[in-house]
Each structure stands twice: as structure tokens, then as C-alpha cells.
Amino acid sequence: MFYRKKIRHLTKAKNLGKLYITVLFILTFLLILFNKADYIVVKKIKSLSTDVLNPVSTFVTSPVKVATYTVNKINEMRFLQQDNLKLKEEVKRLKKWHTLAIKNQRENNALKKLLNSTTNNIAIIKTTTITSQSPDIYAKSIFIKAGVNHGVLEDLVVINERGLIGKVISSSENNSRVLLINDQNSSVPVTTMSKKFNAIIKGTTDGKYLTSTFVKDEKKPKIGDVLLTSGNARIFPSDILVGKVIKITEDGFLALPYVDFNNLEFVQVINIK
């Protein structure tokens, strides 16, 4: 009798509505709690939403992207002649460098054979394109068109022809999310060419620069020093270009990343051999 009354009470439209809102609030708090606890359900939700929302996002934003692309192309057309002259000069300069590079490559290969060295410490997992990039409101991340099906797993490193891009933080079947090195929550152990200096860097608030969070033995780099991954803790392979020191501060230094994060197109997912 009591249960029947209770069921009747619950099934009244008003009470059902209240129950529905309560359930949503409980779900909200559970999700927040599970997220802080790094629970597996939250990871599943994240990867599922990446898989579902990415294609929709690409479709919905495509008219705006096409419009901005067209406007940019029209703007570029205005400077076509000047660009052509610049490119001709650059081709001449690059031809000289090309000859020199071939010579150096041969010399390098010969020396490597003599030393019996195995310097290549990276294994390429997948070369892929970027599907979308998060705006610079909070986290700095990109979505790439490769996932677990292509061997792309969490914690793998992502690079391009210019240097280090970031690290895979979540991957679904066909998509992955990469946290860029200019994000405030990234952490990259770096060193200089001389290997005498070690530090850990992260992104600044605006994401334009990299700033040091820890400097070993409080040593100071010089302005213009090239920063490479140190390979410490085996998170990132060693000797990948990261950035250039542009400012020395009291607490550490500021560096400019080599990678242009606004013009990313192709990336490579790599692993340490």
C-alpha cells in the first residue's frame, strides 16, 4: 500500500520533472568528481565526444572556414608579384644550400658509419593531418586524424618539420587529442646544444611563448640559445627542437617556440625507440 502510494506520487508529472532535474544534478556532481579522480568513465566520455563532435564541428564551421580562406586568398593575390620576386630570390639561395646539404649529408653518413653510431632514437608511428584546433580561450590543443586503430596511444609525442608540437593526451578509435607545448599544463624537459643546462618549460597564459617552471642548479641560459628536448624521464625523445631563448628573467627565461601553432597542417606521431 505504502509503495503503491509512493509510486503514484513519483509518477505525477511535476514530481517526475523534479526527479529528472535531481538526477541531472547528481550526474553533474558525479562527473566532476570522477574527472578529478581520473576515473575510466570520464576518459571514455572524453574520447567518445571527440569522435562524435569533431566531424560535426568540421561540417558546421566549414562555411566560415571557406569564407575566411577565400578572403585571405584574395588578399594574397594583391601581393602576388612581390611574392614572386621574393620566391625567385629564395630559390636561388636555397639551391646553394641544397648543394651544401647534400655534401654534408654524405659526410655525415660516412662519419656515422665510421663511428658505428645509431643516433636515430625515434620510431614514426603515423603521419597525419589536423582535423581541428581548440581556440585559445583555455587549453591549447589540436585534434589529429589518427587514433588507437592507427597505433596512436596516450603519451606519444607529436612533431612536425619545425620541431616539437606536443603530446597525445587522449585517443579514441580514429581521432586523438594533442596537448600543445604552449599550453599552461604542458611540461617539457629541455636542454641547450651544449647539454650543460637543464630546465622544464610550459606555455605562457597567452600561449605565445614558453616559460621555465624549473631550472636545474639555477643556471641561466643565454639569449639566442636553442632549446632541445633533453630526453629526461623518457617522456620526450632527446634532441628535438623546441624553441629559442629570447628573454632572461629573475625566475628563469622566456622562449619562442619554433613551431608556428597557428599554421599546423601535417604532423607526425612518434615514439621513443
Binding site: 564551421t61 566560415v64 581541428s132 581548440s134 581556440p135 597557428n262
Partner: peptide
């Protein structure tokens, strides 16, 4: 979708 997807140059 316009808020969550970055559009370069705009």
C-alpha cells in the same frame, strides 16, 4: 561549434 573550433586568421 564556432566557439570550440579555431578558425585561423579569424
Amino acid at each position: 561549434f564556432l566557439s570550440v573550433s579555431s578558425i585561423e586568421s579569424f
